[in-house]
């Protein structure tokens, strides 16, 4: 089996299932953890529940959010779309946190 490396895209005589594999792995391991973690305090700022549930439910949802984003990293066709989604989610929730802390 022959391999030719071209940037992040691994091409071979047998076609790779994932494009930009290294980028996807980086996003799945690092960016998904950051985004999921940031979403916990972020979600508590807008969930329409009592304080206990507004704090507790995001904690309980964390494993599902992480798993969904992790799988998404490898299923999505466009890597640009992947980064746009992860960065947007993180940014929106950071903004929510900022406004909640700033009062």
């Amino acid at each position: 089996m022959e391999h030719q490396a071209s940037g992040n895209k691994l091409t071979s005589s047998r076609k790779s299932v994932f494009s930009f594999l290294k980028t996807r792995i980086f996003a799945a391991v690092i960016m998904v953890m950051i985004t999921s973690t940031v979403m916990i305090p972020g979600m508590s700022t807008y969930l329409p529940f009592n304080q206990n549930d507004a704090v507790g439910l995001p904690i309980l949802l964390f494993p599902f959010i992480w798993a969904a984003l992790f799988i998404y990293c490898f299923l999505v066709t466009s890597v640009k779309q992947l980064w746009a989604v992860l960065v947007s989610l993180a940014a929106i929730h950071i903004i929510c946190i900022y406004f909640a802390l700033a009062g």
Partner: peptide, 17 residues
């Protein structure tokens, strides 16, 4: 949950609330 609660989840949740 049990593995990550005290090291990531609780600190993150306490940050705003």
């Amino acid at each position: 949950f049990l593995g990550l609660a005290t090291v990531i989840l609780v600190p993150a949740a306490a940050y705003v609330g």
